[in-house]
Nucleic acid binder design. Sequence first.
DNA 1: GGAGGCCTCGGAAGG
DNA 2: CGAGGCCTCC
Length: 770
Amino acid sequence: MSTQLFDDLNEAQREAVLETEGPVMVIAGAGSGKTRTLTYRVAHLIEKGIDPFNILALTFTNKAAREMKDRIIALTGAEAQNVWMGTFHSVFARILRIEGHRIGYPSNFTIYDTDDTKRVIKNLIRENNLDDKIYQPGFIIHRISAAKTSLMSDEDYNSNAEIHEYDSSSGRPLTGKLFSQYQNRLIRSSAMDFDDLLFNMNVLLRDFPDVLYKYQKKFRYILVDEYQDTNYAQYLIIKKLAANNENICVVGDDAQSIYAFRGANIQNILNFRNDYPDHKVFKLEQNYRSTKTIVKAANAVIVNNKNQIFKEIWTKNEDGSRIRLIRAATDTEEGNLVAQAIFENKMNYQLSNASFAILYRTNAQSRTHEESLRKLNIPCRIWGGVSFYQRKEIKDLLAYFRLSNNPKDEDALLRVINYPARGIGKTTVDKLIVTADERKVSIFEIIENLPSNRIKLPENTLRKISDFINMIKSFSVQMKVRNGYEMAKHIALSSGLFKEMNEDKTPEGVSRFENLEELLNAVKEFSESPRIDPETGEMEMNAIRTLDEFMQDIALLTDVDIKDAKDDKNEDKVNLMTVHSAKGLEFPYVFIVGLEENLFPSIQSLNSRSDLEEERRLFYVALTRAQQKCTLSYAESRYRWGNLTMCEPSRFISEIPEEHIDFPKKTSLKKESFSIEENFSAALPGIASRSKKIIIPENFQKISTVNNSGNTPPSYVEDIQVGMEVNHERFGNGKVLNMEGVGPNKKATVFFQGIGQKQLLLRFARLRII
DNA sequence: GGAGGCCTCGGAAGG
DNA sequence: CGAGGCCTCC
């Protein structure tokens, strides 16, 4: 196997694999075989006789970890299962479950995700009677997260004069107080948020020399993927763990750093040479993925960034076809043209659907493309978006699991104490919160001993609370011993959640119910898998897998990690995803859509140069996903939140040298625009009065009415009928030809024909007339 | 205490 | 547009 192992590598890759001792930095350009190098490096270590238990490999996504592990197992055999490989968060959560008792955390602590955090912060803002316009939850969360990431505790935060000055001058002097309250609430809930996992890991390594020593000894070889995306807290953990052996290998590409917004510090990779003076650097510059055209175009774009490590990406691959640019009149047309291009390529070259990817800047763009593809009967899969685990029904059931696993978990308790409704209302809950705050214990501890706590509540309410708590207590006891799937089903039934969901027969309700079943399926699959002892690596075939075991890392999972019963991932479908989630992937044919100023680059990035550089790196990542062909597209007008806006093509398009890109020949639209508000009024009296002014371009084939009237069913629709005459100054007289889906909460579509071949589409979506 | 109407306001990205 | 929150009414 060894010979084969090295035959598969080029010289730079081989050197990076063989240099196992001492600090090593691998600068890996896009498509240069980075994963292969990392995989083979670990395989080589195992072949050399290093115990897999002594190898720590950190990645950024669960998917990357899983794929790498599978490949290593394929190379070296099953013992590679024992390599400590996972995301920073999952590996440190695992360690914190073992060592956390030293800093006051039980091993069953709950991990709060961003939604949970947001709920807690919102509650605190309300309890403090603060104005959430000034104390915006998002802002407070960002301040707290940034502090934790730079290893600043709430005490540090509150005793720092400069910070206090900053918060005061921005009108939020109580930010530090909220930080402390938030932290107290987490601690009394036995919970950590994502930042705490990294923060507390640092505390452990800082304050407990024996822990530091234990893990330094254990992790003799450390590998870090995507090093350019590490933040300070992560950087410091790695540095401490590696301090003794210094067998550390970091792999990254500064040109693909796209997570500065969440604290990733590109300086970590730039400073590696200072941290480890004896380091060796290997640059992987040969691209195996893309055509010459794509590589050159990407190089020409990224060269516009000031901040970067010099490297020259090149390829032996063929020239390939030029990059194509699609210009569309509207977002809908963009979707149709892209779908059509996919259809044609598919037919002409006999390609599978999975050869195609549509990459966009924001998830909101996915819908148009999904619809366009469906019209041509091309199946597609949308990656990411609203995560499975963020759906309300899933969070609710998980909250029951969480609460049973850790009754101190206040966020879980508040979520389900009255859902499904059991007569424990807001007034009661507020009373409980106040009492818990006064006595500095968790709400569960208060309601566990309601009589002795002498809280004045009606007899009826007391009984309801006591029923609830007995139910949770019984769950708690059972969940440690019963089979996980049985237990999950039991909770879903006796909590009343299943019944609640099952009664809703609307399509949304049915889908929610199916989601719950899917979660149960995930538990089932887990319950049926063999248990692997984390210490010895041995498989225990007959061990009962319980629900509290399942709950360990649930907050760290994303929807990509759950096996979707309704959608086999091997099915042949076109891939739709954001550029961020496309990182690390490659496709023969890539479409980068929505290339408009204010969208890609995003409007928020345009104020500072560093943000714009990150957007450019993002575009670079998008381009370098393509193996064979790359097509760019933009629309000249786009609906955003119901408003039609005019768009300019992205500046990034013009950064591609003309020799590599085909511009569309004909101008499809003139740049002028006009308002048709008055004409609307004339044509359809009463409607335009409630419509926002809309601007449509000349020669425009489709327009929609726009309104902001909320979710009220249209009551007027009878006023517009098929056959009705409409007058339009520009398009002439027409007739309403068709109306679809008229009715409460539905969209009414009205077609009418104007002069010549033009057709106007009016969409009266939930329009209200006074 | 709860359901549902009505209005406001946001607007990216992952563990 | 649509999620979330407030407010009213039952």
